[in-house]
Amino acid sequence: MKKIIRKIAAITLAAVVAAALLAGYAFAADDVVYRTVDEIKESGTINIGVFSDKSPFGYVDEYGEYQGYDVYFAQRLAQDLGVEINYISTEAANRIEYLQTGKVDVILANFTVTEERAQEVDFALPYMNVALGIVSHDDRVIRDLSEIGADDRIIVISGTTAETYLVKNYPDILLQKFDTYAAAKSAFENGTGVCWANDNTEVIAFAIENEGYTVGIESLGSADTIAPAVTKGNESLLNWLNDEIKALGEEKFFHADYEATLAETYGLDYEDTLVVEGGVVAAAE
């Protein structure tokens, strides 16, 4: 009996230690760590968080090189800062966490600007338009969310705007959540879920690149933008990015980016719908 009591005491103590650690963690949570432009320049490397499994925006080719629309922009940023890039492969749900803990200086992982996120990180000027879209298998194309049955599941990726939107506006729809793009797409191909909800750019690309899929809903929710994000309060980097984006607008940089990375997938039809140049979103048509 004595031993059991001792054991329970030890365990209680363990729990207390764990709780104390967490409490300390809670109090220190407001300390944000970030590097200013000067600090980044001095170190000679910028840490940029991108996707490594989201073709054609951020992926790794067969030679191990990062490629895509976001990456093309990242390369230019590093070039203009005069530093090397250290790419950090992120998942959708990690993006805010990476910024808040200073693991990356900038997130360029197809990060949609939302009000909730803007409370946690600072967004620079946008460089792409986005809305939500839904792609289904050809044999059962979902054209309206009302077609989703009680047992049907929609695939979403954890931490994306599609997830937030559906959770908020359609709490009764069952979601099948994955934490990486690669996993979600493989599962969708394998017949999990009736459809896949994501950024419309992404689902359109998927339907174009793969046979047997149709984008039944091209635009859902509000029209949003995608922008670089920095750690909350990192004004020096934020201002630099904004100036950079404005300057890049002069030379139509993002159009060139589109043509280099996205045209192969989307053709040129989507160029003006997707690209945001100089941080200025064209008035809604």
Binding site: Y25, A29, Q100, Q176, A187
Partner: peptide, 28 residues
């Protein structure tokens, strides 16, 4: 199990962190 989309504890925590960024509460 989170890797194959089962909503277990780990996945729920990661998912909520991704959704609402209440990291401390979620991890605790």
């Amino acid at each position: 199990f989170s890797a194959i989309s089962l909503m277990d504890l780990m996945f729920t925590a990661k998912d909520l962190i991704g959704l609402y960024s209440k990291t401390i509460e979620c991890l605790a």
